[in-house]
Amino acid sequence: MIRPATPDDVPVLIDLIRELAEYERAPQEAKATPAQLHEALFGPHPAAFAHMAVDDETGEPVGMAMWFLNFSTWHGVHGVYLEDLYVRPSARGQGHGKALLRELARICRDRGYTRLQWWVLNWNAPAIDFYRSLGAQPMSDWTVYRLDGEALAALAA
């Protein structure tokens, strides 16, 4: 079962985010607090959205999709950027990841959005294989750039 996250899900979302950071070999990068996540998802100006994959038998959350809207100037419409997709190892292979992506695809279709996109680490072969099985294609002609830390502060100064 896939459902939108609720404020009561914030603690488990924080746990899932930390589990994902551990899997991606960057546990020190997961710094979001419950208060920050609550504000981003449920504050007066939500900037992000989340859906939960829930075990049908136990009702326990086993995965999540965290996403936000982007915008295509060429198409003139929004799209969905999937920030994080994570399913706990014990629940993998049961269709939860596909169901989460299917829900985001439905949101795109129903709202007239033209894109669902995300990044995947180059070394994450299981995820790459999974995404390709759904028809997703890598954007190999684009390179991701990021400003953060001292470089971001220096440019802003």
Rank of each mutant, 00 (worst) to 15 (best):
S90F: 07
D129N: 15
H78V: 06
L147V: 03
A26Q: 14
G97K: 01
P46Q: 05
A21C: 12
N124L: 12
L82A: 04
L85I: 11
V62M: 01
S140L: 15
A157R: 10
G112A: 06
V10N: 02
M139I: 13
K31A: 04
A26T: 13
L152R: 04
D55Y: 06
G93V: 14
L13G: 01
D15P: 04
P7E: 04
F68L: 07
D84Y: 05
P27V: 06
N70I: 00
G135I: 10
E39I: 02
D9L: 02
Q94G: 00
L104W: 07
N70T: 03
E29D: 15
G93P: 09
H38I: 00
D148T: 12
H75D: 15
Y86K: 02
T33P: 03
L104D: 01
V54G: 02
A35H: 12
F71V: 09
L152M: 15
A40F: 11
W74T: 00
I17H: 01
E60G: 01
A32N: 03
L16I: 00
A151C: 09
R18T: 00
L101P: 02
V144G: 12
H38S: 13
G43T: 00
M64K: 01
A48E: 08
P61W: 03
L134T: 06
H51F: 08
